[in-house]
Structures are given as C-alpha cells and as structure tokens.
C-alpha cells in the first residue's frame, strides 16, 4: 500500500511541473517569482521528499517487474532482486545520458 501511495508524489510533481511550464509560456514575471519559490529551503526540502518517494516508487517497480515477468536466461528464471539491480543500473545510465546530452555545458 505504501508503494501505491507514493504515486501521489509522482502526480504532484507532474502537476507542479506543468504549472511551471505554463508560467514560463504565459507570464515571464510570475515565472521568475516561481523560480524564487523553487529556491526556498522549504521547497527544496519538499522536493527532496518528492525525489525520495519517486525513487522508492521506481525501485519497487523494478522489483515488481522481476516478480511478475521473470526472464528465462539459460533455462533459469531471473529473480526480482536481479531485476532490481539491473534496472537500477539502467536508471543511473539513463539519468547520466540525459544530463550529459542535454544539460552539461549548456
């Protein structure tokens, strides 16, 4: 049940991000004010909580994939723990690729 409830934070960040993009498009003055809010320590703390719950949601998702759809490799089925490890490494690689391609040096 905890895993399901963490989806709330996934939804909250998505809504906040859409609001941020809307402000950027509609009202640059309000957007700058929003960026000031993002730099507020309480907002940073809230964002760290959102990131923590989102990571928990991701990691439990990886574990569940391994349980629901195990792969057969060499006659042996993979375990949920193996799925968790492989997908977590994939998460790190994807994150580094996204950052390197689109944000580093810009």
């Amino acid at each position: 049940m905890v895993r399901e409830l963490t989806s709330f934070f996934v939804a909250v960040f998505s809504v906040l991000y859409i609001y941020q993009v809307a402000l950027l498009a509609e009202n640059p003055g309000s957007y700058d004010q929003y960026l000031t809010l993002v730099r507020n320590p309480f907002m940073i703390g809230f964002s760290i909580i959102i990131l923590g719950f989102t990571l928990y949601h991701s990691l439990t998702w990886f574990y569940l994939i391994g349980r629901v759809q195990p792969l057969k490799i060499g006659g042996k089925e993979t375990t949920p723990g193996q799925s968790l490890i492989v997908n977590t490494v994939l998460l790190l690689i994807i994150s580094i690729v996204v950052i390197s391609l689109f944000l580093v040096g810009k």
Partner: peptide
Amino acid sequence: AAFLLPVLI
C-alpha cells in the same frame, strides 16, 4: 516515471 522522472526532479 521510473526511469526518467527522478533525473528531472
């Protein structure tokens, strides 16, 4: 969400 949202946050 699992693979791309954490890096965006």
